[in-house]
Design a protein around this nucleic acid. Structure first.
Length: 367
DNA sequence: AAGTTGTTCAACCGCAAGGTA
DNA sequence: ATACCTTGCGGTTGAACAACT
């Protein structure tokens, strides 16, 4: 005793800040193949210079396939408001009532949007009451003037007026919504933004179980969605259970050959030699390439996984040909998976213009 | 066009709870 | 019983971005 609390990890050995696509890829692939029975050990096993906590957070809040993105529907907002009245700031409990929504997301929405909305409504109601006391017959007419008094303090507060009708969050998403983009597979930033516009809410609100979130058999533009629908894996489960995958089932149901790992990691690990001058490739091009490759992998969604990895490879500028992959495979097939000693996520060259200009990666490249 | 201000949200931190040896 | 470990939770922060001057 007396030594205090052990730190969750060696802070000097872990990377902090925004996740790079390569790190995301490592994490997703590792969890896809091996599950996450031990978050603390996971970063080391996956070759990530991250704290286990950070990996867990990244997975739960962002990378997990059943995370529902985009703006909250009116129904969801109402649910949050109602639940908050009874539960208070118990975000995870509130989140358990909103499939696909994370506690962090709900917390953010509450703090940035719903709290203001409620405050505004309350002030609105209060001022209405006062007005009606003063002149009972004119209460309904005075609402707009009273609200403008309330919000006159800041220019940005004007937005609050619109909150009732136009949910701002999500619809004006400033940053790309990476996995949503990947799932929806929209061809441009503009369209990607529209994905998270209010019209997409109805799509989202229909989701009552996770396996229905992405229908693989639907249109081609949902192809990528299937890549995140690890339906044969342990993640097609309700939010409350997703953190406790049964590893035995993973191995039984998602028996991804190790080669795919090696294949991928070989490319990832050879990143430093890659060139970065090319423009971002359009996803549909990548898809067509993907579909012409790897068709032979048709076991337990391996084709889908492969397509997804290839898409990401392209986005990351990890263009390795099939021949090169085969070569790498044969060379490294016997090696156990270990992070390269000089693994530096920061050094990964970004093919995406945006990312290279940003200097660091904040989320998946927009499509 | 450049600077300022406000908003959003991903990620971090510390603490508590639960599990295990 | 208890010391240690891991996970989960909620509060907070700060970078990126948009709106505005």
């Amino acid at each position: 005793m007396g030594k205090g609390r052990a730190p969750c990890c060696d802070k000097t050995q872990v990377k902090k800040g925004p996740w790079s696509p390569a790190e995301d890829l490592r994490l997703v692939t590792f969890i896809h193949n091996h599950g996450h029975e031990n978050w603390r050990a996971l970063p080391k096993q996956a070759g990530l210079l991250r704290c286990g906590k950070s990996c867990r957070l990244r997975w739960i809040n962002y990378l997990r396939p059943d995370v529902k993105r985009g703006n909250f529907t009116k129904e969801e907002e109402d649910t949050i408001i109602t639940l908050h009245q009874t539960l208070g700031n118990k975000w995870s409990r509130i989140a358990s009532h909103l499939p696909g929504r994370t506690d962090n997301e709900i917390k953010n929405v509450w703090n940035t949007h719903l709290k203001k909305k409620l405050a505004f409504n309350k002030d609105h109601a209060d001022s209405n009451r006062e007005k009606s006391k003063a002149s009972p017959s004119s209460s309904s007419q005075s609402s707009s003037s009273s609200s403008s008094t309330i919000i006159s303090g800041g220019k940005r507060n004007m937005a609050i007026i619109e909150l009732d009708h136009q949910p701002k969050h999500g619809s004006v998403s400033k940053r790309p919504r990476p996995l949503e983009d990947l799932r929806e597979f929209k061809p441009s930033n503009k369209e990607a933004k529209e994905v998270s516009s209010p019209s997409s809410s109805s799509h989202n609100s229909n989701v009552t179980n996770y396996s229905s979130q992405v229908d693989v058999s639907k249109a081609d533009d949902e192809q990528m969605g299937s890549l995140f629908n690890f339906s044969s894996g342990p993640y097609d489960v309700p939010l409350e259970e997703v953190n406790k995958p049964e590893i035995q089932d993973i191995n039984a149901a998602v028996e991804i050959p190790l080669e795919s790992d090696l294949d991928f990691w070989n490319m990832l690990d050879g990143l430093n030699t890659m060139q970065t001058n090319e423009e971002v490739q359009l996803p549909n091009v990548v898809i067509s390439q993907s579909s012409s490759l790897g068709v032979e992998y048709d076991i337990n969604g391996e084709v889908e996984t492969r397509k997804w990895l290839q898409y990401l490879e392209n986005e990351l500028g990890l263009e390795t040909t099939q021949d090169e992959n085969q070569k790498n495979l044969s060379e490294d097939a016997a090696k156990p998976f270990l992070a390269p000693e000089n693994y530096q996520c920061d050094e990964i060259p970004m093919k995406s213009k945006v990312n290279s200009e940003m200097g660091h990666y904040h989320s998946w490249p927009s499509l």
